[in-house]
Design a protein around this nucleic acid. Structure first.
Lengths: 249, 249
DNA sequence: ATCGATTGCGTAAAAAATACACATTCTATT
DNA sequence: AATAGAATGTGTATTTTTTACGCAATCGAT
């Protein structure tokens, strides 16, 4: 509890590192610098969003970048990603997945920087507060304006990975509130995958998997017949996990 | 053509870097060193093999390691992996896929080394020559003795990735000769996936995908009825590529 | 009480995956 | 020349999964 508070204080004290400080860090000693970049996904108003910040490089001014930072010498890779997430969203327990490492020689104007890309899924209801940063904004994934560096490519690959992965593993739930309707779930999948699905078959699919707990509650404050609320049964899933077998391409 | 020859000569001149030289390179300037490690798969005598070399660290003597090297300051990530492949197998055009980056603080005894793991698929018929290196050997994937560092974990993840990927994309053919029988293909899949399949359904599956070119040739020197030989039709595949859509976990 | 919108449910048809058996073709042997 | 051994090549019935599609019930708003 106390730790929580301390963390929050630290969080407010964090300032975005300026370009020049990064540049000096990079050029001081190491020929190759290492960073992590996070594609932070959220789901709000039935749209898939990504958290971006305004670039602090003149060359890339008015362009958006992913949230990232140099990896500290005594820091695990994943921890660096978690640190960024904590800094930017205030959230500790988030779904995080490493996707790919980008290392083109000229990808960063400040010198040789190789970056490990992650994506993470957060429940937008849980943070709200810490977005009031300088230039931090949620962007519709369908509608992203120009990005700095190779961040568009990084984003594309992370998004593609999410699209693939969400069809094979139950991670979408990380983007939803704990209690959700089946309609919420379908909206989520449609937003992530970018196409509409048949409502009846979607329901059938999820009910037949039998990983949803019927909470015996219904939606509140909807201007129509309210739907039932569900929760994902992770422990049941862990036991029944499907092993993949089938050739198809 | 000339280039080819030159490369071969260079290859023979390459010596395995000693531990102490790596250590000094790492500790000289950079707080974090970067390497690539390659899980090189081959398919021989109906078994899936991986190319390993004996560790040159005392601490890990008698243990096997993946083939890897530090990334050069002016070298693209993928190029570093290709360089290793060229060095060790003499092959230029190999299937290569980045899998994951490993960065635990203590993973390497020489200091902080973050490594980008790749796997690659090579046709064992095409190299043979260059394995006559000091301690370079093909190992059955089912039967790997202790590995140094975190290389067992790296291997496991790369192998898992291959198993997954080979079911969704036509990469297995990189492990086969250009002309192969359907039996060869099935043996390959069984070796990679680790289970037996029904021969008739396997054939049906591949024929229905319609990506195999019937070469109108048959196997030679088999002690039984020879099978027909086929080739994979990459250009047709590229046009018809399947887009994945279906939720299942 | 009615309208509008959405939920909840079931069935028929098509497609894909699985299980399973026998005749054919070639090599090697007698 | 005949035969045995071994693997190839093919087809069908069954089950499972996916897709397409329609209607009654429920709730809020008017």
């Amino acid at each position: 509890m106390l730790k929580q508070v301390t963390d929050s204080k630290n969080l407010n004290a964090i300032k975005v590192k300026s370009f020049s400080s990064i540049q000096s860090e990079i050029q001081s000693s190491n020929p190759i610098a290492l960073s992590v970049d996070c594609v932070i996904f959220g789901f709000d108003e039935n749209k898939l969003k990504v958290l971006l910040i305004r670039s602090d490089l003149k060359k890339y001014q008015d362009k958006w970048t992913l949230l990232g930072d140099l990896i500290r010498p005594e820091e695990d890779l994943d921890d660096a990603a978690y640190r960024i997430l904590k800094q930017r969203t205030g959230l500790n327990d988030v779904y995080l997945e490493q996707v790919e490492t980008f290392g083109k020689i000229k990808r960063h104007p400040a010198g040789r920087v190789i970056t490990v890309a992650y994506y993470s899924l957060i429940n937008v209801q849980h943070h709200k507060l810490n977005i009031l940063d300088n230039e931090l904004h949620w962007h519709d994934v369908e509608n992203i304006s120009e990005m700095a560096f190779d961040h568009q490519e990084i984003f594309n690959n992370c998004y593609a990975r999410l699209q693939k992965r969400v069809q094979e593993h139950p991670l979408g739930f990380n983007l939803l509130p704990k209690k959700f309707s089946l309609r919420d779930l379908q909206n989520l999948y449609e937003a992530i995958l970018g196409f509409k699905m048949d409502r009846r078959n979607f329901r059938k699919k999820f009910f037949s998997m039998d990983f949803l707990i019927d909470l015996e509650e219904i939606e509140q404050n909807v201007p129509h017949r309210p739907g039932k609320l569900y929760q994902f049964n992770y422990s049941k899933y862990e036991k029944k996990k499907k092993k993949w077998a089938g050739i198809d391409f």
